[in-house]
């Protein structure tokens, strides 16, 4: 049996229904564990207790980007293989991604205030996230504006492809435009050697937790979308007959 059979709506409902409790449990353990453990870490010698916002800020920022990538993959699957569940999954993911972007921006502002002395700075990374948020908004707005689901799926798919290219372009354009203040060294995950183990392990746990949290929400929302489509299909059939 091929992987694509999971794209069949009935099969998807069965499998996702069975998976959901486990994924949800993992999400709870990861997020509560990661954030709780993070809360108990000692204060940083320079940043004081504000450093603890990293356990919310970094996983949310990571998911904000990953969710867009997931939407891009799902849109490609829809455009190429015409699996309806894939289009609905992209639709279901968008609001989650937008909220993650918002969390990253808000926590960034809260952190920026004590650290840089300002709520907002037109720093390349912050700006890129703001632009990403705009792309999420446009995508969600287009889905909700078009009534016919077949057209909506195709049009948002095309928008997601073009939007991805331009989001990436904007990212580099913004780097060119302002060199920025975002300190990479002590905070960023990539430069792990600069970050103490004390902070690193709870951060990893929180990141896994956020990934599972996204998966949980995605499954729930996709299942809702499938049920909504099913209702609409039955209703359409009823009015036609």
């Amino acid at each position: 049996m091929s992987l694509w059979e999971y794209a069949n709506p009935v099969r998807f409902m069965q499998v996702s229904g069975r998976m959901l409790p486990w994924v949800a449990a993992g999400a709870v353990i990861g997020t509560v564990g990661g954030l709780g453990w993070g809360f108990l870490t000692p204060d940083d010698f320079r940043q004081g207790s504000t450093v603890k916002i990293v356990f919310l800020h970094v996983p949310a920022a990571m998911m904000a980007i990953n969710i867009w990538v997931m939407m891009l993959v799902a849109s490609l699957i829809w455009i190429i293989r015409r699996h309806h569940v894939s289009a609905l999954a992209a639709k279901a993911a968008a609001p989650i991604g937008a909220v993650m972007t918002l969390i990253a921006l808000a926590t960034g502002a809260l952190w920026g205030q004590p650290m840089w002395g300002t709520w907002w700075e037109w720093d390349p990374r912050l700006t890129s996230f703001l632009i990403l948020f705009l792309f999420y908004l446009g995508y969600i707005a287009l889905w909700s504006a078009i009534e016919d689901p077949d057209s909506a799926a195709d049009l948002t798919g095309v928008l997601c492809l073009v939007g991805s290219v331009f989001a990436l372009l904007s990212r580099y354009a913004v780097l060119f435009w302002s060199q920025g203040l975002h300190q990479g060294a002590s905070l960023s995950v990539q430069s792990g050697e600069r970050m103490s183990h004390v902070y690193r392990y709870p951060l990893y746990l929180a990141m896994i937790g956020f990934g599972l949290l996204f998966l949980t929400l995605l499954l729930i929302r996709t299942r809702t979308e499938i049920r909504k489509r099913r209702l609409a299909a039955l209703l359409a059939r009823e009015t036609r007959a």
């Binding site: 709506p9 309806h84 689901p149 077949d150 799926a153 489509r229 099913r230 609409a232 299909a233 039955l234």
Partner: peptide, 8 residues
Amino acid sequence: HSFNEAFA
């Protein structure tokens, strides 16, 4: 072919 067919 369409959403209405796939989910009916």
